[in-house]
Nucleic acid binder design. Structure first.
Lengths: 249, 249
DNA sequence: CTGAGTAATTGATTTAACTCAAGGTGGGGT
DNA sequence: ACCCCACCTTGAGTTAAATCAATTACTCAG
């Protein structure tokens, strides 16, 4: 059974069809400007993208797209957060990634052939996304090939980051996977401690790390009682990341 | 302990320093031409890349580069096969990818900052690789931004493929991970059966799938006795992939 | 504030996978 | 041909994690 009740079970149709107001918000525009895929764009070209795009509101647990759906848009998160997941035929729900405000996702669709979404995407809470037609960005790259430099850098980084995610998943025991996941959440890795916020509810972090929610809970309780992690709801305080790494392996 | 004896334990220094003969082989050149990153290059530009590159012979289990080493080159496999892996501080050896003849690897280094290899790379048998200076390819993209299109397509595909690898690893049980891995090796997925060759020795496939060699062996023995897979050394014959998928989940 | 529903925790039990250990097997070198 | 050395397989015992089952804690809507 699914680990959590998904949008799939609640609201039957994805909502990409909805047409909303154009994107004219100043704050959101600033955020878009600072994303690597858009930072280099001229004012005019950015305007073109925005004209072609639509702003979309997603409710709690609302489905944005389905696995295998034709992919003609990619997305930028103006506010809120989402997750990417897959559903087995048996209905097992496996979380693959969490998406935060300021992130782009499904942007690989710009070059996918055929363009079909590789997973489901749903909002974890009320969120605003910018729906960007793949074609619009392609047009821009066609006209100004210099823009490809930034895109290349972005894609290379994304590939590295996926590789790193994969690396975590080849760690064989649940505790060590969780520890590595936590270290990655820290802004400076093992360099210095700090407070991190889980980007997903605990049961979905568990799913992301290929373990059961009960296992997640027990491991975290362990780390807590060993004084390695201080837990407050979805906020974790890690004072000494190096100690965490030392007990793993 | 390491699952298998690695180059690390045998030969202490990576061999990137070696300077070999330039790349002038016709067969290898054809293969390079057909790689997405090089297919679009003009004869002159390809020649430039080849002039800057060196051909390198690697012996069985020879180390090509180390995790965290400064990365000024990327690679194209002319013949043979390699694997990418990481080593924990406790010496646990985790295989992350297998590289076959005709593949490019570490090519994300063209855009990495700072450019450091994310893992180890070693030859699994005697192999020939083309050592391409990152700078050479960067120069080309600088001069002809149109080349970036092909590179973008390649990087997007790579990101998708890593995402898919990650997806396999979120499958919680060993048997189902193995089944999915096998299906992916089939040229047409579940569409039709066929013979596949494991791209890695069994103990390394096990490592790649985050399980012990013994577990791998037992699962394969199970599948064999159920008539789902016919095993001949590292060659597996899968007559009905759909049946395999059906028993997973 | 209160109750309903979801998420998180905790306990007891079962099971899948790991570990340790002992044989096989097949290919490459002498 | 033979032996040697990896690699692989198989077995027995142990352990980590899954499963099943309750209880507790939040969150949100009314």
């Amino acid at each position: 059974m699914a680990l959590t009740q998904t949008a799939e079970t609640r609201c039957s149709k994805p909502i990409l069809v909805a047409v909303n107001k154009p994107f004219d918000d100043e704050g959101g525009l600033q955020a878009l400007r600072s994303h690597p895929l858009f930072a280099a764009l001229s004012g005019q070209d950015l305007q073109y993208i925005l004209q072609q795009s639509r702003r979309l509101h997603l409710g709690h647990h609302q489905l944005l797209y389905r696995q295998d759906m034709p992919a003609h848009q990619f997305f930028f998160v103006i506010s809120g957060c989402l997750r990417l997941y897959r559903l087995d035929s048996s209905g097992i729900d496996r979380t693959l990634d969490s998406i935060a405000s300021g992130d782009c996702f499904a942007e690989v669709m710009i070059y996918a052939d055929p363009p079909r979404y590789a997973c489901y995407a749903e909002a974890l809470k009320a969120s605003e996304v910018l729906v960007i037609p793949v074609k619009a960005y392609q047009d821009l790259l066609e006209i100004n090939p210099r823009y490809a430099q930034a895109a290349l850098r972005h894609y290379a980084k994304r590939a590295v980051s996926r590789f790193h995610d994969l690396e975590i998943m080849t760690v064989q025991n649940a505790r060590d996977r969780l520890i590595r996941y936590l270290i990655d959440l820290l802004p400076n890795g093992t360099e210095e401690g700090g407070e991190v916020e889980l980007p997903l509810p605990k049961c979905l972090v568990a799913s992301r790390l290929a373990m059961q929610p009960e296992t997640f809970s027990r491991i975290l309780a362990d780390l807590k009682s060993s004084g390695l992690v201080r837990v407050n709801r979805s906020r974790l305080f890690i004072s000494d990341p190096q100690r965490l790494v030392d007990i793993s392996q």
